[in-house]
Amino acid sequence: MSVTAAGEGPWLDDAAGRLVRPFTVSNGRTRPTIALDLLSQVMATGADTLGYLGPEHAQVLDLCRAPVSVAEIAAQLRLPAVVTKVLLADLVDCGALTAKPPAFHHNPTDRSLLEAVLDGLRRQL
């Protein structure tokens, strides 16, 4: 069994997985202070953060050197989307990140668009 040190990334155990519960990362908060969609793009501003931020906040900033989606960050951190959104909102609130809503050129619930996506997925399988 190996456990990663605190400064080296998320606390993981080879057999048990994450040793810190996801909602501990957000101090039990389940609602971000800003509206973020899974397809929203976030990017680091380069501004210094004021106050204490946890190691996950530092990981987020490292992942956001270029524009990246909320969903991608959640996947990289291996955290639920709602916890990731809380972390991102913390960083937007302190000026360390900027967030842009997804830019849909089409209606995201347009039936023909959804059918085209489904057809593409079927071809991949």
Rank of each mutant, 00 (worst) to 15 (best):
P32D: 14
T33E: 10
T33D: 14
T33G: 09
T33F: 08
I34L: 15
I34Q: 12
A35V: 13
A35S: 14
L36S: 07
L36A: 09
D37C: 06
D37T: 08
L38F: 04
L38V: 13
L38G: 15
L38P: 11
L38M: 11
L39D: 12
L39S: 11
S40R: 07
S40A: 09
Q41K: 15
V42A: 03
V42F: 08
V42P: 02
M43E: 13
M43T: 05
M43K: 13
A44H: 01
A44Y: 02
A44V: 04
T45L: 10
G46I: 02
G46D: 01
A47T: 04
A47C: 07
D48V: 05
T49V: 15
T49H: 07
L50D: 10
L50K: 11
L50V: 15
L50N: 12
L50E: 10
L50A: 15
Y52N: 07
Y52I: 14
Y52W: 15
L53Y: 07
L53A: 08
G54K: 05
G54H: 03
P55L: 09
P55Y: 09
E56R: 01
E56C: 06
E56L: 03
H57E: 04
H57T: 02
H57V: 02
H57A: 11
Q59F: 00
Q59A: 00
Q59I: 02
Q59D: 04
Q59T: 01
V60L: 05
L61F: 01
L61R: 01
